[in-house]
Amino acid sequence: MPQYANIAVSILFDGLAYAMFLFITSVGLSVTMGLMNFVNLAHGAFAMIGGYVVVSLTRSYGVGFVPSLIIAAVLVALISVRFERRLYRRFYRATDLEQVLLTIGLAFMAIATFTYFYGPIPKSVPLPDWLQGSVNLGFRSFPAYRVFMIAVGAALIAVLWYGFERTNVGAMVRAAVDNRRMAESIGINVDRLFTLTFALGSGLAALGGGLAIQLLGLNPNFALLYLVLFLIVVAVGGLGSLKGTLLAALVLGIIDTGGKYLLADAGGFFIYAVTVIVLLLKPAGFYGRE
């Protein structure tokens, strides 16, 4: 294979794996923001907590990698419900600023707590053998872990798409995002719907956090470092849109990976440039309502 084709395939492949991480982690944020207009800057903290649960389970309890991912997602989903019920609920009608302050305060507290218990040094997870080597896909071989990530991402996209577009609950969520008052007046319990999607979103964020350890490393600052990326994906994709989040994750994931491959010095410049251009042209994002 020619050199540049090889690089192009690498960029596409790595970008795809990265995009899956972005999608899995951001989709919950997008839906909860679309539903309640709630700016949740603690979303990255849920992802970080998920990552540390996976680290703890695999390292100290010897649980397998895949089961710990699932346990982490469920555990964080349960914790997040309590936060939503007790704290967030009071701020749905508050201003953007109050929501930003409250949730960034939570993120700071989470970072400090995990720095205290786990230290600031990045953690890694022991992977099972079948995720360590590389997989030959016929024309060339790819790292098995990234193949695994893409597979998980694709499976989740299929499940979420089915749930969102083909089930009753999904229809209710879409209706509530479209017009919350109308949805409430025809008897949809938007509050309960929100709790449900919030739990699901936080659980997915935890799953994304667990998956990202191997790819990006995990230290407590993860909560704020990648939060900016999740917010960008949500803003570029359009609030409350599954399609938009997926498209934004793919575009940004591949462009960011490409930028880092081809122009290492420019670092994260591209992703922000794309964000600014998209938001200037379409302030509500790809599939957001104007």
Binding site: L101, I104, G105, F108, M109, A112, T113, Y116
Partner: peptide, 10 residues
């Protein structure tokens, strides 16, 4: 300190 700022904000 970081924990404190967070708590302070909330």
């Amino acid at each position: 300190w970081q924990f404190g700022i967070g708590l302070l904000l909330i």
